[in-house]
Simulated scan of single mutants.
Amino acid sequence: MSQTKVKKLTPEQAALIPVYRDKWREIALSPGPINRSKAAETIKAAYAIMGKKPPEIIFCDRPYEAADIIVSQLDNPKSLLRSQLESKLRGELEKKLRSYLRSKLESQLERQLQSQLEHQLYTELQSQLWGPQEEDLTREASNKLSQQFSGTGRKIHWLTLGKQIDNCIQPELLAAYGSLLDFCISVLNLPHSYGRNWIVFQSIVRDCGWIYPYDKVCVVCERPIALSADSNHRLHAEGTPAVQFADGFSIYAYHGVILPEWYGRLHPHQWQSKWVLKEQNAEVRRALIPGITYDRICQELEVRELDSWQEYTLLSIDFADDFDEEGNPKPVYLLKMTCPSTGLIHALRVPPNVRSAKEAIRWVNWGTDPEEFSVQT
């Protein structure tokens, strides 16, 4: 007789899902410096799992400095070991975990665990936190290599360079899978017989920065010495770097949007409304607006009054952060509210199809007509 599969977690087990997600997020995002001795031992153990001899291990202060090393590997793509290392390291772990989950849990519960632990954490770290950082660092690496090749007569093949830069194991993304596996071992009592694969896996996430594995050389990068994120786990800092490495290299970000240094090094209180008119990058412009606040923009920039009702005024502002299908800029509409007792001004953005102050008030208040308000606030 087949064993009855578990359809749902107990309340106590379900309550531990965010605990394990937070645990592995914290492990993955711990700032440096890394313990280079432990990292070196971990790399040697990982190569042994692949059946490879210990490589020459080179440590870099920040990821794009690996560009100085990978230039020598450009003509030998067969030496890239990222796929092989990830396959060997995770292969046994994934095989046993899948077998266990499918034999013990209903498929719906299996998908729920993968979604709430592995997939959710991976998406968060990749798209909201490390994706922007990787993009910035990749750009730095490309610029560095372009400068290095200029005047040498040697041409750089950008597709090959892309493969070289992509030959990178990011421990913080492996942490997403670690959260799922750890939960199954510790909470669901998955038989723990993974041996050195699980030990090496944990050490890579805990003790290493980004890893560029080649046949005979492995480049290991230091972690940032400082990293700051908002409550939604997006890169974010106000007036200071969101990511900073020991040698001073910094990345500035505001709620997940990478900012040029001339914006990022200033606190949003110091940002000027007129910058919104000059900024050409739409994503950066959209980040500047809430940082400056609509309230200040209403007071400091030229706006057009379209309609008013009591202490409410519908405004149109002269800059645009969106475009219609023909590529024409769309105006931005704001509902300005002036407090009768204090004179303080507050502004909210409203949809472009709003044509009157009362209609804007109705939209802000979830369809309630302003005439129905018992007390005006």
Rank of each mutant, 00 (worst) to 15 (best):
R349L: 05
Q126P: 00
Q108V: 01
W363F: 15
V220T: 04
E94I: 08
K104W: 10
G343W: 13
K95Y: 02
N365E: 03
K8Y: 08
L109G: 12
V257G: 02
K144S: 05
E56V: 15
Q310I: 14
L129H: 13
S179N: 05
A45T: 05
K5R: 15
L173I: 14
A226W: 01
Y294R: 04
Q120V: 05
L235Y: 06
K95L: 14
D182N: 14
W210V: 00
A45L: 07
A287E: 13
C168S: 09
H233W: 08
S374V: 15
P329R: 10
L266S: 03
A226D: 06
F149S: 11
K53D: 15
M1T: 03
P213D: 06
A242N: 00
S79W: 06
W366H: 01
V217D: 04
D68V: 00
N167D: 11
H255Q: 09
I27V: 15
N76S: 14
N35D: 15
N76Q: 13
T313W: 04
K5C: 05
Y177W: 09
T293V: 02
A360V: 08
E325G: 08
Y312R: 12
L288K: 01
W24Q: 06
I70F: 12
L174F: 12
E140M: 06
R139C: 03
D321C: 12
E326C: 10
W366Y: 04
L80N: 13
E12K: 11
V243Y: 04
V6M: 13
S142Q: 03
T4G: 04
T123K: 05
E134A: 11
I199A: 12
T10H: 00
L161C: 13
L344C: 08
Y214W: 15
G248I: 03
N365D: 04
E12C: 01
V257F: 09
D321A: 14
I43M: 12
L85I: 07
Q112I: 00
G153F: 06
K88H: 03
Y252L: 03
Q272R: 14
H255I: 05
L105T: 05
L334R: 12
